[in-house]
Write a protein that binds this DNA or RNA. Structure first.
Lengths: 146, 146
DNA sequence: TATAATAATTTTGAATTCGAGATATTTAAT
DNA sequence: ATTAAATATCTCGAATTCAAAATTATTATA
């Protein structure tokens, strides 16, 4: 009985990993077609939706080491999707700010990005999706606490 | 209404990603303490539970490019957790075979590994876990089909 | 104010993964 | 039996990430 519970938990772990991978691969390849990787897309989306951000804040929100932020921001800057802006009050700080080109890019792909995710999730009913959200939230919060 | 559905799907995607990351980080750091990364552990576990495998089969089951298999198998071989065995009937093929040392290693960490995952999943009841498994299976299979 | 502790960013080197090409072998087709 | 196509593994170079150290700037303290 205890044994079965453990097996079930393991099974859930595996199924969760597979579902995540399957979806991620799709999202990833769509974004890659557009010339970005997921991390770059994540940063750009953050700037688009939340406005300019100090580099360090980006690390906190996207879960990325500081060295990686520099790398990703460099790449987005090369692509002219964002610019670095020095903070006037604290010279240690640099803001990342999405450019018009970056905004146009996000706006050009976001609708299809959303639609594709929705299509993948539409195998569940709205009510099932709600259930899944609640269960996964619990799992995530509990794991963070450990 | 349609809009809300899309938002809900997006939310599910985010919650799924976060839950996966939270759990994975924990599992990962436990395995890392023991001197392996998740990929190495995955390969070793496969050999332990399913017996000797041609390298290529490993790639299929663990979802790894052929170049990466060579790399991971090299590392496990260096650690003396597996050996390469040439196939007698097809000289293109090499089997990976877990060693006694590898078996002992898996046996020494697997119980705690399972217990930790179970602890993280125990925030859900057995019935909720069953529900989560079914919903995630659907999502994964559907995404694969696209 | 000089000094020490903090903080933000960048640099560097290592680890891991992928994809494409190289090599060796086997299978299928002529 | 040769040749062509397919298969398995490995090699190589590029991309991405992290962690630790280096740099620069700020804040707190003596």
């Amino acid at each position: 009985m205890e044994r079965d519970d453990i097996q079930q938990s393991l099974k859930l772990f595996i199924v969760l990993s597979r579902a995540h991978r399957s979806i991620n691969d799709k999202v990833n390849s769509f974004i890659a077609e557009k010339g970005l990787n997921m991390t770059e897309f994540g940063v750009l989306e953050l700037l688009y939706h939340k406005g300019d951000q100090p580099l360090q804040q980006i690390g906190g929100k996207i879960l990325l080491a500081s060295g990686s932020i520099t790398y990703v921001v460099d790449k987005l800057e090369q692509k002219e999707y964002l610019t670095r802006i020095a903070c006037k009050t604290d010279r240690r700080v640099t803001f990342a700010s999405i450019t018009e080109k970056g905004k146009a890019f996000i706006e050009s792909i976001f609708p299809e990005h959303e639609a594709r995710i929705h299509e993948m999730m539409s195998v569940l009913t709205a009510s099932e999706r709600e259930t899944a959200i609640n269960l996964l939230k619990k799992i995530g919060l509990n794991a963070d606490g450990k």
